[in-house]
């Protein structure tokens, strides 16, 4: 399947990001609002969104919760030193655990041995400790070392910004 989007879609996508990065307006016809600003018909706007979604440029179009505000105040970045010959098999397995929201392979560096990252969230320290244990059990002997970096403070968190700077401090 082609991962390419046409140049005109790419240009529309850039304008779409600028228009919607802070969210859609809460009006009865949000696509009409968007269509007007993109200079497209409402049908063409919906088709564009569907295309970008199918293509992967848009992950989802949704009511995006702020888990921290919903009581999920504990997050742990679990990091794992997984054998190179096992990571492409085990990475996807960790990624499908329900407790994991993000899971990436990243390079090792001098002074940094961990090549697998998995984010877990919970409402207590015990809850995320449990998730870490779950991941450790899954990785088994392929994991040589691990750590969990808990977040004590969010200093800056924003969505993607290509247009106007917009930040929210907590």
């Amino acid at each position: 399947m082609s991962a390419c989007i046409s140049p005109s879609d790419a240009d529309l996508a850039r304008r779409l990001v600028a228009l919607t990065e802070a969210g859609l307006p809460l009006v009865e016809d949000p696509w009409g609002w968007l269509a007007e600003r993109l200079g497209l018909s409402p049908d063409a706007t919906l088709a564009l969104l569907a295309r970008l979604h199918a293509d992967g440029a848009i992950r989802r179009i949704a009511a995006v919760p702020n888990h921290y505000r919903l009581g999920y105040r504990h997050n742990g970045m679990t990091v794992w030193d997984v054998a190179d010959d096992a990571i492409e098999r085990l990475g996807p397995a960790v990624g499908t655990l329900p407790c994991v929201s993000h899971c990436y392979r990243r390079p090792r560096k001098d002074g940094w041995r961990y090549n697998l990252f998995a984010m877990v969230h919970g409402r207590s320290a015990a809850e995320i400790d449990g998730y870490r244990a779950e991941i450790r059990a899954l990785l088994g002997d392929a994991c040589r070392a691990d750590d969990m970096l808990v977040s004590s403070r969010i200093l800056k968190k924003t969505g993607l910004r290509l247009g106007e700077p917009r930040s929210r401090m907590r």
């Binding site: 996508a13 850039r14 779409l16 990001v17 919607t20 990065e21 802070a22 969210g23 859609l24 809460l26 009006v27 009865e28 949000p30 969104l49 970008l52 979604h53 992967g56 440029a57 848009i58 992950r59 989802r60 179009i61 949704a62 009511a63 995006v64 919760p65 702020n66 505000r69 919903l70 969505g159 993607l160 290509l162």
Partner: peptide
């Protein structure tokens, strides 16, 4: 619409709309 507006104002929702794939941008 009322709940979405309220949840957004209270911060329970960060927004309603598309979530873009950062790497594509």
């Amino acid at each position: 619409l009322d709940r979405l507006a309220r949840l957004q104002a209270e911060g329970a929702l960060s927004r309603v709309g598309p979530v873009f794939e950062h790497r594509r941008a």
